[in-house]
Each structure stands twice: as C-alpha cells, then as structure tokens.
C-alpha cells in the first residue's frame, strides 16, 4: 500500500525527496490531480510502512505537506 504526500511545486517536492533520501526512505515524485483549491500539484509516493518516519522527516525539514 502506498501513501502520497502532496507537497506543491516541483522544487519543494524535489527538496522533500532529498529530505526523505537522507533518511533512506525511497519515494517517487508524482503529479497529483488538479483540484478546485489549487490546481495541479506535486507529491511523493511512498510505501505506507514509512509513513510516520517520512512525515517526521518532512516536518523536521520544514516542508509542509498534505496526505492524500
């Protein structure tokens, strides 16, 4: 099972990916569907087993996210 952390722009998402890599958490950069609140955004798909660790890493890196 996968989880997608919606980040926002590609730059922020790539930065987020680097933050996860630093914790050896594999992720894939994915485009998320557009929605009324913001349009297309980018996120990281990760294995759900890494959920808490990934959330913690992103928070510590100061990266805002939304879990889809």
């Amino acid at each position: 099972m996968d989880t997608v952390f919606r980040i926002g722009s590609t730059s922020q998402t790539t930065k987020a990916r680097s933050a996860l890599q630093a914790h050896s958490i594999p992720s894939k950069m994915v485009k998320t569907d557009g929605n009324a609140s913001g349009g297309c955004t980018w996120g990281l798909r990760i294995d759900r087993r890494h959920y808490y660790e990934a959330a913690d890493a992103l928070t510590k890196a100061g990266i805002r996210y939304e879990v889809l």
Binding site: G8, S9, T10, N35, S37, G38, G39, C40, T41
Partner: peptide, 17 residues
C-alpha cells in the same frame, strides 16, 4: 504557467516558481 497551483490566477508566492 508554473506547473502547479494552476487554478490560482496569481503566480505562486514561493521562489523559484
């Protein structure tokens, strides 16, 4: 276009986009 947040008619607030 900036590739993200396209429903917002304004440019993104963050750099570099």
């Amino acid at each position: 276009g900036s590739g993200a947040f396209s429903t917002d008619p304004r440019m993104p607030t963050l750099l570099p986009e």
